[in-house]
Structures are given as structure tokens and as C-alpha cells.
Design a protein around this nucleic acid. Structure first.
Length: 564
RNA sequence: UAGCCCGUGGUGUAAUGGUAGCACACCUGGUUUUGGUCCAGGCGGUCCUAGUUCAAGUCUAGGCGGGCUAGCCA
């Protein structure tokens, strides 16, 4: 894995890092991953994690985990725990380097005083509204606050009293004194501190002034001596400010480098929108298997390696992108194909009676566990007179290219026998309820008979007398639009929700070995796809499986093309 | 509208100024006791216009197109 990475050309960030190491600018590198604990991590965060942890790893450096907990109103301990669990699951390790921006509140406070004394920050008594209106616009410069030139002593006193809690929320802020006419609006005297009488998950009621992102982030990077602070393009406009604070303070110069976040077709990755899906009951929670959250993907059956491999093949650049979700699915199948145990299960059963097979006979057939891994060995599956096959594997009036079972047609039962359909039993409504077939004893195990007969199709099956029952949940893309946020004006992005994203199959019949299927293990139900036990809803005896992803299905593709 | 950033096949991403490559997707064919996997082949691209140069995806200028930014969010 790492040899692959070093062999391929370096992306632009790795090029910078390699150069910094080569020129001796840094002896070693240190990156950081700075989640805000206000939501669950999703596939987009996984990109940032793979980049920050992955690059450090490639160059023998380390990565700090630092929670950006500067807004007590939105942040919760539950999220901190979930984030740590997800990063670990993804396969990365921050050792003991778990930090919090709130660890630095005291240092930040002291640095703020230093800037006030140096005439580079001041307390502004304007309301939020006034500040907004005097900030100017994209084309017009801002108007200086009437408090901009008050003396350092007064600001110092006011700032001290802000900290003590003498003033209500929103009554005053501390602002950096930079340039109200700057073309970059972030430089127009940005707010450094606001008053928030809120209880912080970690610092409790110790503080009632909280630093803004711009004032906290770069300084936290510097305190930790982060060499390369990697973030997404949204922060590009903040870099001048990031550098300004560091220069004014004369502290360790961390360097911020931005890359484009990765968008994926048919999915949304915005915490706000994901939260909305949950709150409006469109999904069951952060870990709904249709969610692009790491907890959702995990529950769905995605492997960490497949997600890392995905971001590795996608690469890093600065241009806007919308990655075909098929790429993600490809990486998933690639990994699952390698490791999944093969089993047989019938999702939509139709009964088959083999009329010339002894009623009291049960044979144990040999089945290969994983053709991609010989060491996975073999298992026995029971075969008897009554079986279930997939309803879709039978057609009464099949088209030419249909290779499966039909009246008078012979097919192979995988690892079983070759059978021929002799009779179709229907109910009063005309629906097929049972098939009567005959088998050829010379085809045991599915082998070809000595007469050289050929068969076009091989289908899967389960012994009706030995099958275990299960519920199986089939998932499709959560959205039916390639870009779910692309809404004709006046429309709602939720209108793009795919009404068929969940299909629950309740009468599934699985081979007996699945009775003790384990959570966290992927199984390939042959010819159908990859499945896993649902970690929440499955009970011993009441099995619930999630379909992680279907197998590539050229037959289904042909059908779809025909239709439309 | 101002500043910053970005334009390479359908998608994603490469190419010291020197043969535009790789992956996915798509299309063929082969193997196959999974219509899976695997294997072989194919389709398809440098936003435009000038300029510099023996040579431009790459450098220069001007266009055009897209993204971000006017939170006391991060």
C-alpha cells in the first residue's frame, strides 16, 4: 500500500512537504485533524483525515487530533466520542496527542492582551448589526468603528470586564485592528472574541468569552508546532489573517495549505443537511446505513480500507469536483471481493420440489468459501428434495438471453445438481407458487454429466428444510439526483430524496451457516451482493442483514437499457 | 460588482517547456459451477484568442467559464 503511494507522482501538498524536508525547513512534520464536535464525521471528513494522517505517515511524521471546541452552543461530548471512534475505525491513530482548542483558552487570552497593548486589537461596543453594516461590501470598504481608536488602557479594562462576565451576550467584542478597507473582508478588523454566557462541555463556566475560529485555529496550530495545517478551500480567504496573527505574535509559523473537498454524486456532505435529514425523519439517525457518515457507512458494511483506497485513487487537487459515486462503489467491491465469505441466500423465495429426489435424503454438498482466497477453505451445505430459489431466476416465458430456469429448461444449482423444470404450480390469482423439477443424479456437485450436455445458467438456492429466516434491507442511493442540492428555483433539495432508497425484504431464506453470522463481517450472497449483519437491529434468531452493495450485474444492466 | 482560487476525455487525477498517461464509467471479445472475479481490446480530452519558443496542457497577455468570501459559525 505505501509502496504504491510512494511510487506514484506526488500530489501538490506532498510535493511541498517533501521539499520542506529536503531543504531543511523542517526536520520532521506534524499535521493535525481539527474536527468541531458538533456532528458526526462523514465521507468528506474521511478525505481530510486521509490527507492529514496519510501525509504525516508517508513522511514519518505525526498527526494531532484537536477538537475545535470554541463554540459551546453547538458542541457536545457525544460528538467527541463518536469522532474518536470513527477515526480509529478508519484506521488512524493519534496516540496520546488528543488536544482541544479549549486547552489554549488561557494562552489565547494572554495573547489577546498582548495585542491590545500593542495597539493591534480593541474592544468594540457596537452591536452585531452595526458591525455588519459597517463592514462594507465586496466592492465598498468598511467604515471604522467609533471605538476603533480608543486607548489600549480602556480596551484592556473593558476586555478584563468582558471576561469577568460584567456584560451581557453580544454587547461587546474584541476585534483585531487591521484594515477596514482591505479587499479581503476577513482583514476588516475581524472579531476575535465574543461574549457567550454558555456552559462549555470541557471548561464549564470558567469562561464567558470565547475565541472565534480565526483567532483560535492558527494559534492552536502554532502552539502545537504544526508544520503543515491542511484544510479545505473554504479557508483560503482566511490564510492572510491566519498569517497576520502569527506574525504579530511572532510565534511558530505553521503553514496553512488548502485543498478541494471531495464531492460525490448522489450524496450530500454538509452537517447542516445531514442533521436536517435526521430531524425531519428522512433517515433513522446519524448511523442510518444510507447516510454518508462514517458510522452509517460502517453499519452499511463499508470497510475502512475501501474508503481509504477511494480517497487514495481520487487524489488531491484544488479544483471543484464531483466524483462519480461509482468510483466509491468500485473501491468497495474491490475490497469486499477480496475478503468476503461466499454464502447462498434467497431474498425473494419461490419453492422448488425435486420430484425424483428421495424424500428422506439429505446430502451435504461441498462449497468454496472464497475463490479469491484458497485458505478460506470449504464448507458443507445441505441439499434435499425441497428448496428455495430466487423468484427472479425463473421466467415462464423467457426472452432469448435469459439463461436461468424456465419450463422445460435445465440449469445448474450451484454446488448442487442440474435440474429441469417440469411443471409450474400457480395459485388462484395466477401467481407462480411452486416449481416441480427433476434432477440428474450424474450432476452431483454441479458437475457436467458424462454425455457432454451443457447448461447456460447457474443459480443459487437454499434447502427449504434447513434455511434460516432473515430480514434483508436493500439500499439504493439516498438521492435520485446526481447533485441533490441542485434544485430548480423555489424547490426543496429534499424533493431529490430517492423514494426507493430502502427496500425491506422480510421472508428471506439463508443457508444455515448464517445462523451465527457475526457483526462486522462481510458476506457475499452469491450472485446478489455483499451483506452484513445489522449491528443494531439484528438479534440471535431474528436476523437482520444490510446489503452493503450489489454485485455488478450485467443482466440487470441489459434489462434496464432495454426498458429505457 | 471587488479580492482570492481554479479550468486536461463523461467523472476523478497525472505529465523537469519535449510521445497527453492512469483509474472509474461506457462499449467489444475471451475465461468461468457467481450474468461476480479475472484477462484482452476499444471509445473519448488540454476553455478561447493572440504571443514567446525549434517545441506550449505547461510560460506571457487578454478574454470566457466556474468556485469562495460581506457570521459575534467552523
Amino acid at each position: 500500500m505505501s509502496t504504491d503511494e510512494t511510487a506514484s507522482p506526488l500530489d501538490f501538498i506532498r510535493t511541498i512537504v517533501a521539499d520542506d524536508l529536503k531543504t531543511g525547513k523542517h526536520e520532521s512534520i506534524l499535521t493535525r485533524f481539527p474536527p468541531e464536535p458538533n456532528g458526526y464525521l462523514h465521507i468528506g471528513h474521511a478525505k481530510a483525515i486521509c490527507i492529514s494522517f496519510g501525509i504525516a505517515q508517508d513522511f514519518g511524521g505525526c498527526t494531532n487530533l484537536r477538537f475545535d471546541d470554541t463554540n459551546p452552543i453547538k458542541e457536545e461530548q457525544e460528538y467527541i466520542d463518536a469522532i474518536k471512534r470513527d477515526i480509529t475505525w478508519l484506521g488512524f491513530d493519534w496516540d496520546e496527542r488528543e488536544y482541544y482548542a479549549s486547552d489554549y483558552f488561557q494562552q489565547l487570552y494572554e495573547w489577546a492582551i498582548q495585542l491590545i497593548k500593542a495597539g493591534k486589537a480593541y474592544v468594540d461596543d457596537q452591536t452585531a448589526d452595526e458591525i455588519r453594516h459597517t463592514r462594507g461590501t465586496l466592492t465598498e470598504p468598511g467604515i471604522p468603528s467609533p471605538w476603533r481608536d480608543r486607548c489600549a488602557g480602556e480596551s484592556l479594562d473593558l476586555f478584563e470586564r468582558m471576561k469577568k462576565g460584567e456584560f451581557p451576550d453580544g454587547s461587546r467584542v474584541l476585534r483585531a485592528k487591521i484594515d477596514m478597507a482591505a479587499s479581503n473582508i476577513n482583514m476588516r478588523d475581524p472579531v476575535m472574541y465574543r461574549i457567550l454566557h454558555a456552559t462549555h462541555p470541557r471548561t464549564g463556566d470558567q469562561w464567558c468569552i470565547y475565541p472565534m475560529y480565526d483567532w483560535a485555529h492558527g494559534q492552536s496550530d502554532s502552539i502545537e508546532q504544526i508544520t503543515h495545517s491542511l484544510c479545505d478551500l473554504d479557508f483560503e480567504n482566511h490564510r492572510p489573517l491566519y498569517n497576520w496573527f502569527i506574525e504579530q505574535l511572532g510565534i511558530f509559523p505553521s503553514r496553512q495549505i488548502e485543498f478541494a473537498r471531495g464531492n460525490i454524486t448522489y450524496t450530500v456532505t454538509s452537517k447542516r443537511k445531514l442533521l436536517e435529514l435526521i430531524e425531519k425523519g428522512k433517515v433513522t439517525g446519524w448511523d442510518d446505513p444510507r447516510m454518508p457518515t462514517l458510522s452509517g457507512l460502517r453499519r452499511r458494511g463499508y470497510t475502512p480500507e475501501s474508503i481509504r483506497g477511494f480517497w487514495r485513487t481520487v487524489g488531491i487537487a484544488k479544483r471543484e469536483n464531483n466524483i462519480d459515486v461509482a468510483m466509491l462503489e468500485h473501491c468497495l467491491r474491490e475490497d469486499l471481493n477480496r475478503l468476503a465469505m461466499r454464502v447462498m441466500g434467497v431474498l425473494d423465495p419461490i419453492k422448488v420440489v425435486i420430484t425424483n429426489y428421495p424424500d428422506d435424503l439429505v446430502e451435504e454438498m461441498d462449497a468454496i468459501n472464497n475463490p479469491e482466497d484458497e485458505s478460506a477453505g470449504k464448507r458443507k451445505i445441505p441439499f434435499c428434495r425441497e428448496l428455495f430459489i430466487e423468484r427472479a431466476d425463473f421466467m415462464e416465458d423467457p426472452p432469448k438471453k435469459f439463461f436461468r430456469l424456465a419450463p422445460g429448461r435445465e440449469v445448474r444449482l450451484r454446488y448442487g445438481y442440474w435440474i429441469t423444470c417440469q411443471e409450474v404450480i400457480k395459485d388462484d390469482a395466477g401467481d407462480v407458487v411452486e416449481l416441480h423439477c427433476t434432477y440428474d443424479p450424474q450432476t452431483r456437485g454441479g458437475d457436467a454429466p458424462p454425455d457432454g450436455r451443457k447448461v447456460k445458467g447457474t443459480i443459487h438456492w437454499v434447502s427449504a428444510r434447513h434455511a434460516v429466516d432473515a430480514q434483508v434491507r436493500l439500499y439504493d442511493h439516498l438521492f435520485s439526483a446526481e447533485d441533490p442540492t441542485d434544485v430548480p428555483n423555489g424547490g426543496d433539495w429534499l424533493d431529490n430524496l430517492n423514494p426507493d432508497s430502502l427496500d425491506v425484504k422480510t421472508c428471506c431464506k439463508l443457508e444455515p451457516s448464517l445462523a451465527d453470522a457475526k457483526v462486522g463481517v462481510s458476506y457475499q450472497f452469491e450472485r446478489l451482493g455483499y451483506f452484513c449483519v445489522d449491528e443494531k437491529d439484528s438479534q440471535p434468531g431474528v436476523l437482520v442483514f444490510n446489503r452493503t452493495i450489489s454485485l455488478r450485474d450485467t443482466w440487470a444492466k441489459m434489462q434496464k437499457k432495454k426498458k429505457g
